[in-house]
Simulated scan of single mutants.
Amino acid sequence: MIKIKICGLTRYVDIEYVNKLRPEYAGFVFAESRRRVSAGTALKLHENLDKEIKAVGVFADESIEAVREIADKVKLDVLQFHGNESIEYINSFKDFEVWKAISVKREEDLSNIYKYKNIRLLLDSKVEGVKGGSGKTFDWNILKKHDLEQKIVLAGGLNCENIKEAIKIVKPFAVDVSSGVESSGFKDFHKMKEFIDKVRRL
């Protein structure tokens, strides 16, 4: 079964939505973003999250110490890195599940993915000046030429209209959605339900 992550949760009602709809992962953004939350807010949200749903923290080029402080305070299950984090940096978090985001626009952007061993890769759209959360897709067909050692998490512009095609082409371990299930910048229960229902039926 393809797993689902709903990212960019900022409100208590967002937690109510995911508790009802039961995706496998709930994402809290600590990187620069309009969906950014403080560690204190994320902790309060996580305290109300169903225990079977894993909490993912999204970071970009933070110090190891800062990430650890937030991860321990919020009790995160997964660390997702969207910056220029080195292998050595990532290896310092072996006590966590780690996802490394790779920004993709064209095939050459996939050239360095094989250096990440035993790390889940999150493939997102490359948009200048934006580290994730752009709401844009990339050409999923370029992945067909690559024998990916890690099962991937597909992100970038996914929504209720394109999710079936995306899964058919990529066959990912998981899909990650944020703006695609929002209305006026906030999570929309009906869009979330439609998205999750479509994934579950595949």
Rank of each mutant, 00 (worst) to 15 (best):
R34F: 13
K145C: 05
E149L: 13
Y12M: 11
I102F: 03
K51M: 07
S183N: 14
S134H: 12
K115Y: 13
V127D: 08
K144N: 14
I196H: 06
P172F: 05
V56P: 01
P172Q: 07
E62I: 01
I119E: 08
K171R: 14
V181S: 04
F189A: 09
K191Y: 07
S125A: 15
N159M: 08
D139S: 10
I152F: 08
G83F: 01
D77R: 02
L122R: 02
F28G: 02
K187F: 04
T41I: 15
I90T: 05
D176K: 01
M1Q: 10
N118K: 11
S134E: 12
N112E: 15
E128F: 11
K94H: 09
D50M: 03
H82P: 00
Y116H: 10
A39H: 02
L79D: 02
D176G: 01
I169Q: 07
R35S: 06
K168E: 15
F138I: 14
K187Y: 05
A39Q: 10
K3M: 10
K126T: 10
V127Q: 11
E128P: 10
R200H: 11
I167A: 07
F189N: 05
K131M: 12
G157K: 08
G83Y: 00
M1T: 12
K191T: 06
G135S: 11
V78W: 06
H190R: 12
S184N: 15
G185S: 04
E165D: 15
K51L: 08
V58P: 01
E16T: 11
D61N: 15
E69M: 08
L49M: 02
L79R: 01
I70C: 03
N162L: 14
K117C: 10
K151E: 15
Y114S: 15
I15A: 02
V67R: 01
L79Q: 02
I15F: 01
L158D: 10
L121T: 06
V127R: 04
E182P: 03
L121C: 09
R106H: 12
N84S: 13
K115D: 15
F173K: 07
L45K: 06
Q150H: 13
F189S: 05
E85Y: 06
C7N: 07
R106F: 10
R11D: 15
H190Q: 13
F59S: 06
D50T: 02
Y114R: 13
A39N: 05
E88A: 11
G8N: 02
G27W: 03
N162P: 04
V98R: 03
D50L: 06
A155R: 03
H190T: 14
R120C: 13
V177C: 00
S178H: 00
G129Q: 12
N118R: 11
L21Q: 03
R22D: 09
